[in-house]
C-alpha cells in the first residue's frame, strides 16, 4: 500500500522555514500597505475605493507581525519532514516559461510537443519513446478538438494545419 508509505504533509511541515518566511511576508505586507496609503492620498472615505486596500494590507501586516512574533516564542522545530528538492520545481517553472514564450510563435502543436518532452524529463521520466508518442498525439488531438469543435483558436504557428 503505497498510500500508507507516502509521507504525510502534516502540521509540522514548514516550521523549518525559520523566521525568514514570516519576515518576508511582513515586508511584502508593509510594501503593499505603503502603496495602498500612497494611492489613497488621504482619502479614506468608506464609500471610496481607497479604504479597502488599506484595511486588507493593514490586516496582512498585523497578522504577519503576529506570525513572526509567534515564531520567536515557539522554537519547537521538528526535523521529520522530508527535505524538498528544488531542482525539479525550478526545472518545471523553466519549462513553463519557455512554453509560454514560444507558444504564440511556434504554435501550439510544436511548443506543446517540446514542452511535454522537456517537462517529463524534469519529472523523472526515463522512457523517451513513450513521451514522444504522447507529445505528438496529445497536442494534435487537443488542437483539433479546440479549433474544430469548440472554435477556440490556438496559435497555429509554424506547423501548417
Amino acid at each position: 500500500m503505497t498510500a500508507e508509505s507516502e509521507p504525510e504533509r502534516g502540521p509540522v511541515a514548514g516550521r523549518r522555514s525559520g523566521w525568514v518566511l514570516p519576515a518576508a511576508l511582513l515586508l511584502v505586507g508593509i510594501g503593499l500597505l505603503i502603496a495602498a496609503v500612497n494611492a489613497a492620498g488621504g482619502d479614506f472615505s468608506p464609500q471610496g475605493p481607497r479604504l479597502a486596500p488599506v484595511l486588507v494590507t493593514g490586516g496582512w501586516v498585523v497578522i504577519a507581525a503576529l506570525y513572526l512574533v509567534r515564531y520567536r516564542h515557539q522554537n519547537s522545530e521538528k526535523d521529520d519532514e522530508e527535505p524538498a528538492g528544488w531542482k525539479a520545481p525550478l526545472g518545471v517553472v523553466g519549462c513553463l516559461v519557455g512554453f509560454a514564450i514560444i507558444l504564440e510563435y511556434a504554435g501550439f502543436v510544436v511548443s506543446a510537443f517540446l514542452f511535454i518532452i522537456a517537462v517529463s524529463r524534469v519529472l523523472g521520466s526515463r522512457s523517451l519513446v513513450r513521451d514522444v508518442i504522447v507529445a505528438v498525439v496529445l497536442p494534435l488531438a487537443v488542437y483539433f478538438a479546440f479549433t474544430r469543435l469548440l472554435e477556440i483558436f490556438l496559435p497555429a504557428g509554424v506547423f501548417p494545419l
Binding site: 519549462c95 517537462v119 519529472l123 504522447v134
Partner: peptide, 10 residues
C-alpha cells in the same frame, strides 16, 4: 506521473 503532470500543465 511524469506524463500525467505534463498533461495537466499543458
Amino acid at each position: 506521473r511524469p506524463i500525467l503532470y505534463a498533461g495537466i500543465l499543458v
